[in-house]
């Protein structure tokens, strides 16, 4: 295997992993605060269509990404209002948000079908990335670096900041946190908004970086993988980044193996690899500890009503 090929594969892995990682980070923060938002796929689609529409209208992909975050965060606010203020069921509301996002993105995107736009440019000057090895360091889309920086940020926030501690406390025991005076609903609203913005940013990766176009259901179910990754990572930031890159690697290697004419396995087997990997890792995680559920925030998915 030549170096160039290896570099290409590694670049593809980072590309496939990045949107999953960004969306999963948002969901992780929301879940750590005790809110299960199954609307990631819908928010990603809202983000994808907004990013594309804004990039086409203004000519600026960067503005597109920012607008995507804003639009998806706005849609998560609907979810937040229904589940936090009106204490609606989180699972049902999240699913509704996905259906809503799928429909509304198709509707809003209709005028943008069949055109393309400029992609989000590279962060570093291309002259830095001429050599294949340096390309691996400098040749990625800006979102790849942003994804890794966000991971660091979320890890620091959850593990080492006071605000992160409060957020985790609320996710573990909302009543206790409430009784010592922490604003449970406000924190949860902020966590949901962050989750929405991240899903929007992840969506913009599809419509502005990977395939600069809009088509209905562009993300084709990637939002569900992001939700699964959070469980897969047993709610830990470090494992989340590993999981996302592992998924990216399996997705990429499946296609690379087929493209290399590696016909030892049936194509159906190779396609099922990402899911087999999920099962294997889930089994390993739960074998390591008595119960994998121990890792889940105790108040995940439970509505909170302030009693006093």
């Amino acid at each position: 295997m030549t170096t160039t090929l290896l570099i290409s594969i590694l670049m593809s892995v980072a590309g496939a992993a990045t949107p999953l990682l960004i969306a999963a980070l948002g969901e992780l923060v929301a879940e750590k605060s005790g809110v299960l938002n199954l609307g990631v796929e819908g928010m990603m689609l809202i983000g994808a269509v907004t990013a594309f529409a804004v990039a086409v209208t203004t000519g600026s992909p960067v503005l597109g990404c920012i607008a995507a975050m804003a639009a998806a965060a706005a849609s998560s606010l609907i979810f937040g209002y229904l589940t936090l203020s009106l204490t609606a069921n989180q699972v049902a509301t999240g699913l509704a948000l996905t259906i809503f996002g799928t429909g509304v993105s198709a509707l809003a995107g209709a005028p943008y079908v069949g055109i393309t736009t400029q992609t989000l440019g590279l962060l570093f000057p291309p002259s830095l990335a001429t050599d294949p090895i340096w390309r691996l360091v400098f040749g990625h889309s800006p979102l790849v670096y942003i994804g890794l920086l966000l991971t660091l940020g979320v890890w620091w926030f959850l593990k080492h900041s006071r605000a992160g501690l409060i957020l985790r406390a609320i996710g573990e025991s909302d009543m206790a946190a409430h009784s010592i005076g922490y604003p449970v609903l406000t924190v949860r609203y902020l966590a949901v908004l962050f989750g929405g913005a991240m899903a929007g940013l992840a969506g913009s990766y599809y419509s502005l970086v990977l395939t600069p176009m809009w088509a209905e259901r562009l993300t084709a179910g990637r939002g569900w993988i992001a939700i699964a990754l959070v469980v897969f990572a047993s709610w830990r930031t470090g494992r989340l980044v590993l999981g996302a890159y592992l998924f990216g690697a399996v997705i990429t290697l499946e296609l690379q193996a087929k493209a290399a004419g590696f016909s030892f396995f049936a194509p159906e087997f190779l396609s099922s690899l990402p899911y087999l990997a999920t099962i294997v890792v889930l089994a390993l995680i739960s074998a390591g500890r008595r119960n994998a559920r121990l890792a889940a925030p105790a108040c995940l998915g439970r509505p909170f009503r302030a009693t006093a």
Binding site: S12, A16, Y206, T211, L218, A220, R222, Q256, A259, A260
Partner: peptide, 17 residues
């Protein structure tokens, strides 16, 4: 039949090879 991200990745893999 329809998975833009996977279709794009497949094309890239073929070009890589």
């Amino acid at each position: 039949w329809y998975d833009p991200a996977k279709e794009a990745d497949a094309a890239k893999a073929l070009l890589d090879q």
